[in-house]
Nucleic acid binder design. Structure first.
Lengths: 239, 239
DNA sequence: AATCAGGTAAACATCCGAGGTCTTCGGGGA
DNA sequence: TCCCCGAAGACCTCGGATGTTTACCTGATT
């Protein structure tokens, strides 16, 4: 195994064992390199790799630090990974979201505080009467993020956040091309909010299912007809 | 932005745009470095980072290649990330698994081929009558992997695979300490298999729920009593 | 006394070039 | 035909030199 990979493991171990706690600063490059028994160049490769997945945070002129290691930070790195297969597997991602979102919404109906619920309602109100599609989708993302957060499960919340990215583009596309999609989205958001406010987990779950399934169904149909028309799957506008 | 990060993005773009397809070989280090306008050292940092998340595969003496980029490979990198918070958030991970596993099992009951189902049954039979806990858990992992694979959703399958890792340790611990856990696990596996073989998605879903919830409940109780015993709270509530 | 400009040191960023090691592949001998 | 072996190509590792950025101390100004 290359020394760089060994170094990655060693740093990983130092963090897992608690020798390095979140927020701690690492020894300077030269020092750590000597301690791990490799050159600065090789060490830097290890550090850069751990930076990509948000485990380390390097600040030029200052030093290298362990991040907070909170789930949202680490799962967040998954967004980078998901970027690599947007076109072919979007449906699979959406299917997973269809499983998780209703569950999270039901949990939120049980666990969210009254204050959080009030904030959720206000958030819906901030949307203009005749919003642009971009504004709607942004509002959409934040709405679901608040609910996911309200589930009380940090891992679930981060996972949904990661899954939202790739599917957001599909939602924008839908808003632009499907008649009535905007109005329908607003209605369903209101229904979900009402169900949560009424502390009705099963009703909230059902509305969430309907909501996500709507996007999924539309996308399935669209991809089906698109494939029939254009053998070339378009590389579409990024995000 | 550091040149290394720019290089990471450029390579990422080359892959996303299709300039580099899965399995393709990258230009040699020196050549690519010149083309991207940076030194070999910096380029190597970028490549190493992309290796960690399984986007690139470097083979000494041969060259650097783009991996297959299959979901299982990329999501698999998440295992590395999950390693960083095993103790404090295991329950959260398990809760997510509790959501996904029943859904996957129900899908499997609908989509698995007869041949795959037969193989699933045979897999259960390969377990010795009086297995070690390790053998049981290994058999357990493979059993659920086959079901997840049978769901027909590659993303779902990979996600469950990733979640299985951190919870496996908990399952081993349970097998060692809880009386009757081994027998109960075998019974539930059989029940899940029977439900899938009978093409009963809802029954399969329910058995899967029961199965995962059993581990979750046990872990919740165990962690609860452990906390009560040790006044020393672990390194503070992250998240 | 509080504030701000300037300077200094520390730490990371980048580059270069020199060996070392591993894999692949083709040639020569049995 | 099969196996051993050597050469070429590509990545691996190292050490050092130089540039950039940041944090922090210092001292003059208001």
């Amino acid at each position: 195994m290359p020394v760089t990979d060994i170094a990655i493991d060693k740093i990983k171990d130092m963090i897992i064992t608690g020798e390095l706690a979140p927020g701690d600063r690492l020894p300077k490059e030269a020092e750590l390199a000597q301690r791990l028994g490799l050159s600065r160049s090789s060490l830097r490769e290890a550090v850069k790799a751990l930076c990509l997945i948000r485990v380390l945070d390097v600040r030029q002129g200052d030093g290298t630090y362990v991040t907070s290691l909170e789930p949202h930070l680490l799962l967040d790195a998954m967004t980078f990974v998901i970027d690599f297969h947007r076109d072919d597997t979007v449906l699979d991602f959406l299917a997973v979201r269809r499983i998780l979102e209703p569950a999270a919404t039901a949990l939120a109906a049980m666990h969210m505080s009254e204050a959080d619920i009030a904030e959720l309602g206000e958030h819906l109100d901030t949307l203009a009467d005749d919003p642009t599609v971009e504004a709607l989708v942004a509002n959409d993302l934040e709405f679901h993020r608040k609910i996911a957060d309200g589930s009380g499960n940090a891992v679930l919340c981060s996972l949904l956040d990661s899954l939202s990215g790739p599917t957001a583009r599909a939602r924008i596309w839908r808003g632009l091309t499907q008649e009535g999609a905007v109005a329908k989205t607003r209605e369903q958001h209101s229904a979900i909010y009402e169900a949560i406010a009424a502390r009705e987990p099963e009703l909230a779950r059902s509305w969430a299912t309907v909501h996500v399934a709507g996007v999924e169904q539309w996308l399935r149909n669209t991809l089906g007809s698109a494939d029939a028309e254009t053998p070339e799957p378009d590389n579409g506008p990024a995000s």
